[in-house]
């Protein structure tokens, strides 16, 4: 197994820690290099070691793969007050530049889960070196059909009715306890609100449009464990009706997989999907 690839520790630009997984035969310059990005604040290993398994699987197929930490995450240096979003995009650029210098790598595929997916598409929209993106549970704005689906889904849950009967539901609180102190927003709610702001939605749409315009190949993988975010196959297309997504995207659903792909079978399916697509 291990004879099929070699893993090297790297400190890109002296600040960004990463692992370069090189096929034993060396980097094939005709193939793009897979670069796996952080998920949220988790370091480059990925939940349940998913990024390690993905990089090794890809390298076994003859493609070089790299995972690294943005500054401020994992083993990388602190971000020193820079905006995390801008810092992440700058870090991707630095890493691609260094891989180009060291391995003559010219074409790249970015891959990320959740926030890593969002950073992948934003960077791909503005950098010629990126020829593909593998987006796992990327952010999708909520559409009317999605909101209805979620609402109907909640009505079909026993817990919704139980909470209503017991006076625990939020709707009950809003109707009958208007004077109660406002509840603080959870981090998920905050993120949801930020990502559904019109400017965020427009920026995401522009990134998809620009990437498609450049001919970037897009793989979008959705876990059905993220129904609060994504509930039907055409949601991405409905969210951006003016962007010709259908012609550029390979869309894959991982049924019953949870967002962090906790089950080994689900991770195996994801890795197989990305490896075949790349």
């Amino acid at each position: 197994m291990s004879s099929q690839f070699i893993e090297r520790a790297a400190l890109f630009g002296g600040t960004k820690a990463g692992i370069v997984t090189v096929p034993t035969a060396g980097h094939d310059e005709t193939r793009p290099v897979l670069v796996v990005l952080n998920t949220g604040i988790s370091h480059r290993v990925g939940h349940h070691r998913m990024h390690v398994e993905l990089c090794r699987a890809v390298a076994r197929q003859g493609t070089m793969a790299v995972r690294f930490d943005f500054r401020g995450i994992g083993d990388s240096a602190p971000l020193d007050g820079a905006d995390p979003g801008e810092g992440a995009l700058a870090d991707i650029g630095d890493v691609l530049r260094e891989l180009g210098d060291r391995f003559k790598a010219r074409r790249f595929v970015l891959c990320g889960l959740c926030s890593g997916a969002d950073q992948s598409i934003h960077f791909a929209s503005q950098d010629e070196r990126v020829v593909g993106v593998a987006l796992i549970d990327p952010q999708i704005p909520k559409t009317r059909r999605h909101r209805i689906a979620v609402g109907v889904g909640r009505l079909r849950m026993w817990g919704t009715w139980r909470n209503l009967l017991l006076g625990r539901s939020r709707a009950y609180g809003r109707l009958f306890r208007p004077a109660s102190p406002p509840r603080s927003e959870t981090s998920d709610e905050y993120l949801d609100r930020q990502l559904n702001r019109p400017e965020s939605r427009d920026a995401l749409g522009r990134s998809f449009a620009a990437a498609i315009d450049r001919g970037v190949r897009i793989l979008a993988v959705f876990t059905t464990g993220e129904r609060e975010r994504w509930s039907y196959r055409g949601q991405l297309f409905d969210a951006f009706p003016d962007v010709p997504l259908a012609r550029a995207i390979s869309l894959v659903e991982l049924h019953d997989a949870d967002h962090l792909l906790s089950r080994r079978d689900d991770r195996a399916k994801l890795i197989e999907t990305v490896t075949k697509w790349i």
């Binding site: 889904g153 909640r154 464990g225 906790s262």
Partner: peptide, 20 residues
Amino acid sequence: TPARRRDPVGLRPRRRPASH
């Protein structure tokens, strides 16, 4: 740590986790 409990919102019955 099976799949997070806050997932599906009732759109589809959840199947049993795959066996390892």
